[in-house]
Nucleic acid binder design. Structure first.
Lengths: 225, 225
DNA sequence: ATTAATATTTAGACTGGTCTAAATATTAAT
DNA sequence: ATTAATATTTAGACCAGTCTAAATATTAAT
């Protein structure tokens, strides 16, 4: 009677976290493999194996052994609910309680699992049923729909074209603070004024000032023309 | 090697809940005995025994076997923090998100364990460092001080004396809704117009209307002259 | 086609918290 | 002072979730 066979009943916070991680990885077109998931979850691979087995028994994921995992519709539904909670909470903390966008992630990380549907609804209503959180991350609707992202990033926006920052795909506190200092936050109007070859830095103009931005970082900033 | 001997490390939400329950019972001048605590925690007495042993090893309670438990200073500190969280959250949900006083208890019951000190501080600031929650329950300050309650209740307020409701010691949803319907909420100005003998009903005047109130219930409504 | 490196899974132990069933202690009632 | 009723504690099992160490499978490299 190994551990894995006993696991698996309720949708606990831990289960929600696994589903969320799987969802986000699948969405980033990754193959969801044991080690990767283990890294994300800060857990050893063997723990992932056990949990995945449990999730499969609950009908929340399908598991091709030695290949990868993917969410079933019910798994995805739960993941989207949790993500909705997370992003609503982030936005609420910023809008209603004066948090900055670099402070809200950890807080939302625990709150997302414990707010009731009623509280979720009140928060959403208070915010006017918003579509994106402070990072521009799309907030799933109640029925699991997601606004689509713009196709351009600062790394491929044509030169001299005006655009607007829609989303910043990063949750590193220091980097977010840096970007906020530059004015590179969702809503900002920007323009690429220079771009070095071989994936070199991108020079971006925000308002009157220009700054050189690492290519890797530029790719994380989603732009709408 | 019995279970109890292995228990006991971190201050988990469950530990916080036990400490809170013990605190509230001690405060109500009860002897904190195993069965009573078990009832409060919705748990079997044997579980309480195990947990109490663990709490004692953590230095959070002192345990006189077969007699009772009481909190050490560090146990009390934790209990007060959790209660502060709970009551701040209750008040916040009412003030900022339009909850009614009968809806907030369950929500606060889980949130109390997961809000950070930073979020606690913002909530407190946003509310203007309040002293009582929507039920009039006193909110411990950061250093663990508690405002004192009035000594009178509706059950012993002298006839024809004007008073103000300070606190309603009840968390039963339906009863709270009933009391709110009568206008018997913290802040309300009241007066006892009649009182039947042998712990019979108390007739209370709120505004223009009078209502008969069960003696047991009247004792839970704390009044300041 | 072997071998080596890497990824995945199994086996089995541990912790926190609960439970049931049985043992023991205390209190109340005769 | 026994007995009966009740409260408390112990013994031992279980579940969720993790871990380490070992076994097995897959992929890459020669």
């Amino acid at each position: 009677m190994t551990t894995a066979e006993n696991l698996a009943q309720a949708v606990t916070p831990v289960v929600e976290d696994y589903l969320k991680a799987i969802y986000l990885m699948e969405r980033a077109h990754m193959q969801v493999k044991t080690v990767l998931l283990a890294e994300r979850m800060n857990v050893k691979p063997s723990s992932v194996t056990a949990m995945v087995k449990a999730l499969a028994e609950m009908g929340l994921v399908e598991h091709e052994p030695y290949y990868g995992v993917h969410l079933t519709p019910s798994g995805e539904r739960i993941a989207l609910e949790v993500i909705r909670h997370h992003r609503l909470i982030e936005l609420y903390l910023v809008e209603a309680l004066g948090f900055t966008w670099d402070e809200v992630h950890e807080e939302a990380e625990v709150l997302e699992h414990v707010i009731s549907e009623k509280l979720e609804a009140r928060i959403a209503a208070h915010l006017g049923n918003p579509v994106r959180d402070p990072h521009g991350d799309p907030i799933p609707t109640l029925d699991g729909a997601l606004p689509t992202d713009p196709t351009h990033t600062l790394a491929d926006l044509p030169l001299k074209t005006r655009g607007r920052v829609v989303r910043v795909c990063d949750q590193h506190t220091e980097r977010l603070r840096y970007l906020a200092g530059l004015g590179l936050v969702p809503g900002a109007r920007v323009q690429v004024v220079a771009r070095e070859p071989f994936d070199g830095p991108v020079t971006v103009q925000i308002g009157k000032e220009s700054h050189a931005l690492d290519h890797q970082l530029a790719r994380k900033i989603l732009i709408e023309k």
